[in-house]
Design a protein around this nucleic acid. Structure first.
Ligand SMILES: [Zn+2]
Ligand SMILES: [Zn+2]
Ligand SMILES: [Zn+2]
Ligand SMILES: [Zn+2]
Lengths: 152, 152
DNA sequence: ATTGGAATGTTATAATATATCACTATGAAC
DNA sequence: GTTCATAGTGATATATTATAACATTCCAAT
């Protein structure tokens, strides 16, 4: 859980390592830009906008245009290495890329920290209601805003 | 439930009537523009973007600029007469404005119909997970995408 | 060597949203 | 009745987020 203090260097290392391995296995190309964007996202437990990413890339010497950031982000999201937080129009590295999952997010409105969690929604009230309505859920955006334990 | 066939004229009438009453009671001004925007939203069980609204307003003779639409939408959202669907960056009239609620949405990716539902999330897995993490949820965005009964 | 695909570079523009200031109406305070 | 404060609207400009379209590079397979 990203709200708790933890060995954050390991978050980054683990994230990059996992992506590297997965891409190797699946024949995907974790190109320098894609890897760098993933690292940037992993650096903070906070969602970054595409233009934040662009700015940071530019500090690295990549003077890239918007499509570059969006492409890298698309790739990462597509393959489950990152997620888009719709409420923020921003992106965050996946913190549990090992497991197939339907992530939900807890967003602190004070410090902007974002934690990825995995409640079993389909079994809960949402899934039941949808089922009753004859609606087939393919994907769910679940984003809770509030105050994290550190900001209370 | 907006997926089922129903007397839709009544949806519109009820929505406007409720807003009128509420505003009367609370000393709020349901101005012509605000009422018209609400009507436009009520016309379809589909989310409309601010610029869709602007276009429709313009067909009515109001040659308005973006802030006009956003202000009216802000008002409606603020007072619970409409909701923003984050996943779509668009707005939809509330279908059950009588009750205090934390709405969730079912979004059909085929016909774009949106249904507002009210699962008891706080009692479910999400609420539990948040509580365990010491996170206080103030608001939750819950938006499921999939296929509605009519499009199956 | 040629071809084809995937990734990136580059330019332009679309789509969504807000800041700011000017103007108007309304109603309360004096 | 005039003054004043407030809420709403009008209007201009600009910020922020996102994509379309086409050119170029690189590498591997034929
Ligand atoms: Zn960490
Ligand atoms: Zn916090
Ligand atoms: Zn209806
Ligand atoms: Zn449908």
């Amino acid at each position: 859980m990203s709200f708790q203090s933890h060995n954050h260097r390991q978050c980054i290392k683990r994230g990059v390592q996992h992506a590297t391995d997965q891409c190797e296995k699946a024949g995907l190309q974790l190109t320098p830009i894609r890897q760098r964007v993933l690292e940037l996202l992993l650096t903070e437990h906070r969602a970054l906008g595409a233009y934040d990413i662009l700015e940071k890339l530019s500090e690295d010497g990549w003077k890239s245009q918007p499509p570059v950031a969006y492409r890298a982000l698309d790739f990462l999201v597509q393959h489950g290495f990152a997620h888009k937080v719709e409420r923020l129009n921003a992106f965050i590295a996946c913190t549990t890329p090992e497991t197939n999952h339907n992530p939900a997010f807890l967003i602190c409105r004070i410090c902007e920290a974002v934690a990825e969690i995995h409640p079993q929604l389909s079994r809960g009230a949402l899934g039941r209601t949808a089922k009753d309505a004859g609606f087939v859920i393919e994907q769910a955006v679940v984003e809770a805003e509030g105050v994290c334990p550190n900001c209370r």
